[in-house]
Amino acid sequence: MSVRVFLLALWLPVTAWAQGYAGLGGSAEGFDTPDPDYVFSFPRDHGPHPSFRIEWWYLTANLTGADGQDYGVQWTLFRSALKPKEQEGWQSPQIWMGHAAITTPDQHFFDERLSRGGIGQAGVSAQPFEAWIDEWHMRGDNFDQLELSANSDTFSYDLQLSATGPLVFHGQKGYSVKSADGQASHYYSQPSYDVQGVLRLPSGDVTVTGNAWLDREWSSQPLASDQSGWDWFSLSLNDGHKLMAFRLRGGRGDFTAATWIYPDGTTATLPDGAAQFEVLDTDEVAGRNVPTRWRITLPARGIDVEVAAMNPQAWMGTRFEYWEGPVRVSGSHAGRGYLEMTGY
């Protein structure tokens, strides 16, 4: 895809993501801030929270094709509010951005979309659930049964998602702390979707099955000022356990957090420092050194695994750039999952 140089590319606060959230490290300036005592309510909370500055609906899927090959799929809708006051029409401060990608062991396709809120070109409704930007959509009668679609000039996909377990809340009942200073977000996931559908690639159509993980997160000031980026893992182990673990890289030291998910969907929240991250290998990707092989240890749970990128070149060369791709897990446990790295 040829990256279109769009207006405002450098201005949008979403750029802040690329800079490791540094731009959002300050105050919330009139936006709501996450509340540790917040009680989630569904389906309402599947919908948008425009009084918070940023929010996303983030789906990643590990799939296997009828051809026996592994595939990774990403579908993300970001919402960013330019300022707190809501307004109808073109001048709504809500800006939406969609990212879609398919990763194969040797290729990585991606596309992005940008839209104004307030005119119906992009948005999210909670019931029936629909998240959309242009013709891309993720929708269903409820959050457990979704159809997912994205489309570009080189690839497209249509997938059916069916939840097999409950929603999972990270941190303290969905209040996920992001730094020692207390920056936090509201964060829950649906980590157990069964997936089937079709990927359309330049080489032809592929029928796929597998599983997907959907993250929901919103906040107004997620990172501390010294934090420059993050490494985020979602791993599905073959024994039915799942692990969400992230490391925020900061000048004053890293901040880590993890959620251990049992096969029945119950969770254990692991404190800062419980998970340890070690970079085993880096690759040169898009002109920078990006870690593509990791060792993750969780001594309390007897975990010592190596996590390796399926395709080290899974670079999202979008308006703000980051690495996002499927990974393979080996060592004390085997499995697969997704890795996202920002700020490199």
């Binding site: 405002l8 450098l10 201005w11 949008l12 606060p13 330019l82 300022k83 006051k85 307004q87 001048q91 709504s92 401060p93 800006i95 104004r116």
Partner: peptide, 15 residues
């Protein structure tokens, strides 16, 4: 954008 004091996109896009 490239000027000394680039305008805030929020100013351009909203009322």
């Amino acid at each position: 954008e490239q000027s000394q004091a680039p305008p805030d996109p929020a100013d351009i896009l909203t009322d």
